[in-house]
């Protein structure tokens, strides 16, 4: 059985600035990282591999340099990595993206049965949390979002029981496999690659699936297949509140000012 983990390579948002004129992200010179929400998704897939011996396939849609991120996943123990990369995939919104990913997963399902697909709850650049749901819809899988614990996996009857982390409460749900599971970061502590695995992943191959392999009609993918488009990105003006002190250079003073302010407003008391 296959467990799929979807990962996304994102710009390191702490180092991203927006261009005040064009309103777009300045991506030049910004390092790329694995979407931090996706690492626990991969980890959860790898844990199932450790326990049940599933084959873990990690997939990602993105530009060719996404290979680096996929190699990292191989170093962590993924068995295969598939990179969905083609000019015609570019400019995709969540709808078009989930179509390509869903198609890739259904191609994988021809190789072997899929037990589950793991995604991070959302990406740190788009923040939509729609791709996981989109994949589930297109594949007809049950979707379990915001999962913080896999409680039971019953392979003979093909059922999974998970705990979802909701605001102020937990929800335990059970569903037949295959399922699409999006995870929250609390679900696990991702592993660190061992050196032999790193060295091995350096030589192993990331499979490149472009559209001549995927054979998707261009009107369904990329910019053309997208229902939405980003017009502008900007930091909203602060309309209220005030910044106390200079937390960056003088954290002690800033903390003192904050405490005083909170005392004054009766938010805290001594």
């Amino acid at each position: 059985m296959i467990v799929v983990a979807c990962v996304k390579q994102v710009p390191d948002t702490t180092q991203v600035k927006t261009d005040p004129v064009t309103g777009t992200l300045i991506r030049e010179g910004v390092p790329f990282i694995v979407n931090p929400f996706d690492s626990p998704a991969l980890e959860e897939a790898l844990k199932l591999k450790d326990k049940y011996g599933f084959r873990v396939v990690v997939i990602s849609m993105g530009p060719p340099n996404t290979e680096v991120t996929l190699k990292k996943a191989l170093a962590l123990g993924a068995d295969d990595a598939v990179l969905l990369s083609d000019r015609v995939f570019g400019g995709a919104d969540t709808l078009a993206t989930s179509k390509v990913l869903a198609e890739a997963i259904s191609k994988l399902s021809q190789e072997d049965e899929i037990a589950a697909v793991f995604c991070g709850r959302q990406s740190i650049d788009g923040d939509t949390a729609q791709v996981g749901a989109g994949i589930a819809t297109r594949l007809g899988y049950t979707q379990l979002t915001l999962v913080d614990q896999i409680q039971e996996l019953d392979l003979p009857i093909k059922k999974v029981k998970v705990r979802r982390k909701l605001e102020g409460r937990h929800e335990v749900v059970e569903t037949p496999l295959p399922a699409l599971i999006t995870v929250v970061r609390e679900i696990n502590q991702p592993r660190y690659p061992t050196v032999p695995m790193r060295l091995m992943s350096g030589d192993s191959e990331v499979k490149l699936w472009n559209n001549s392999i995927m054979e998707l009609p261009t009107e369904l993918i990329g910019l053309e297949g997208s229902a939405t488009q980003v017009r502008k990105i900007f930091s909203p003006e602060r309309t209220e509140g005030e910044i106390l002190g200079d937390g960056e250079n003088n954290p002690d003073e800033a903390a003192r000012l904050l405490i005083d302010a909170m005392l004054q407003k009766d938010i805290i008391s001594i």
């Binding site: 180092q15 390092p31 660190y192 061992t194 050196v195």
Partner: peptide, 21 residues
């Protein structure tokens, strides 16, 4: 660290921060 990737959990962030930034 190198053969078993087994270390106190605080170090995961530390190593990743160093490696990334």
């Amino acid at each position: 660290v190198e053969m078993k990737a087994k270390f106190p959990p605080e170090l995961l962030n530390f190593f990743e921060n160093i490696e990334g930034r």
